[in-house]
Design a protein around this nucleic acid. Sequence first.
DNA 1: CCGGACGCCTGTCGGC
DNA 2: TGCCGACAGGCGTCCG
Length: 271
Amino acid sequence: MPELPEVETTCRGLAPHAIDRNIHQIIVRDSRLRWPVEAAVQSQTVGRSIRDLIRRAKYILFKLDDGHLLIHLGMSGSLRISDGDTPHEKHDHLDICLDSGFIIRYRDPRRFGSVHWTADDPYQHWLLKDLGPEPLSEAFNGTYLYERSRGRRSAVKLFIMDSHNVVGVGNIYANEALFLAGIRPQTQAGKISRPRYERLAQSIKKILNDAIALGGTTLRDFISGSGTPGYFRQELNVYDRGDQPCRSCSRPLRESVINQRATYYCGNCQR
DNA sequence: CCGGACGCCTGTCGGC
DNA sequence: TGCCGACAGGCGTCCG
């Protein structure tokens, strides 16, 4: 599913088509997403203009003249620009029809994503209000991770995937960042030193920035807002490379499971 | 409070 | 070829 770079890429792809366009119509073909699509998503948005598109964590915020649309892509969701003549396909659950004739089309086979409307400060929405800092902000750094992790006994991989601690880091980039930082994923978060957290924070920033620069990672079906795949897959050092040679030391990579999630690391380079 | 497991849902892939 | 289980990029909720 989309992690931060894929959501950012989606946002950037949509923005030129979306900003300053008026919402002409919203078609909801299936409201049974992670959270039911409420009537307000249609009733409060039609006739409004989109003034900005902002990413917060893995949410895409459509700033309207009045209120905000919030969209999360879940595990299998995508938002892409479609021309008005393209017929909808299976799993195309919602269309945002613009006055330009283009459609922002939401597809989500597994329906783990969701769409909301809020009149109030979107950052105070119940789904957003308890989120941790953005990983690419200055507030996120080694000192923050170090202090936040004291006394935590869970695996560092889970610690950085917990959106209360830092947002946007999913399974792919958690694996990749820990490889770059030379830290074993199963290490207890509370036992890692400050200098190692400095390196981990920098690794997370680097991996996310590099992935954004290449349009994200396409494993099977991710496509950007403008319809192109991401090219970061070829840059992955460990994810989905169990038993293949480490790109740094050539020893076979290891694969294990942490909290029901596939975990990849190099037993030699990561300690 | 913390940590871990579960479930939501569909599609795909590997093994038999 | 067909069936069946495992697994997949997330995350809110529940339980101990």
